[in-house]
């Protein structure tokens, strides 16, 4: 294999890591608060706002139900507004992040749901404010579940990023399609798939390790 080819593969790998990394971080920063909101605004919860909860729930479900490939195309004007272009890795980050936010939110909500209600009650009996309950009870107690959710999200982002690559997003997906499929170079195709597999394994192992470390149960 030529050194130009190796450079291409290396560049594509870095692009994928960049897309997954940035959209992963952004979707965590926005999705975790949304997940907390979804949970604490439920009826009978510490910040019960049933109407707001319904609105958030519907918006989240819409975000979850639009197929990624359609979402990517549908928000092109929005993507352009934010990053100034609709192709390339930066452009891919926008739909990736938007697709991942509701995903993260639901997983976080699920993790919070696992916390025994007695813990919140105990904190309330000590005079904790809703903000203190979120910071000192809900988030720390759900840490393992939240990390599990973020791991699932990152793994999903790896495969979505390959999809984004297929429509000009750059990265391993792009490389695989362009060289492996269009120019029929099975070696490149195999290498990109192999790198994606290793990447997913790596993220999963890292996630599992972090969960184990945070788990005191």
């Amino acid at each position: 294999m030529s050194s130009a080819m190796i450079d291409l593969i290396l560049q594509a790998t870095l692009d994928t890591l960049y897309m997954v990394g940035v959209s992963g971080i952004l979707s965590a920063l926005l999705g975790v608060p949304l997940g907390v909101m979804l949970y604490v605004t439920r009826p009978r919860q510490i910040l019960a706002r049933p109407a707001l909860n319904q609105v958030l729930g519907i918006v989240t479900n819409i975000g979850r139900s639009v197929p990624f490939i359609i979402l990517m195309v549908a928000i092109i004007p929005f993507t352009r507004m934010i990053v100034g272009t609709s192709i390339g890795t930066n452009a891919a980050i926008v739909p990736l992040t938007i697709a991942a936010i509701p995903f993260v939110a639901r997983l976080v909500e699920g993790a919070l749901n696992e916390i025994p209600p007695g813990l919140v009650e105990a904190a309330q009996s000590m005079g904790a404010t809703p903000g203190q309950i979120i910071a000192k009870v809900l988030l720390p107690e759900a840490r393992g579940g939240i990390i599990t959710g973020l791991t699932i999200t990152v793994v999903t982002l790896v495969s979505y990023s390959a999809m984004a690559g297929a429509v000009g997003g750059g990265g391993l997906g792009d490389l695989g399609i362009r060289y492996g499929y269009n120019r029929f170079n099975p070696t490149i195709m195999l290498i990109t798939v192999a790198i994606l597999v290793v990447m997913v394994q790596g993220f999963q192992s890292l996630g599992d390790y972090l969960v184990r470390k945070s788990d005191r149960k």
Binding site: G118, E121, A122, Q124, S125, M126, P140, R216
Partner: peptide, 21 residues
């Protein structure tokens, strides 16, 4: 009410300790 609750302790059947602490 939160201030007043600082002056009222409570214990429970299932202890309700934070597992993360």
């Amino acid at each position: 009410l939160n201030q007043a609750r600082h002056r009222i302790g409570m214990i429970f059947q299932h202890f309700n300790l934070l597992t993360s602490r």
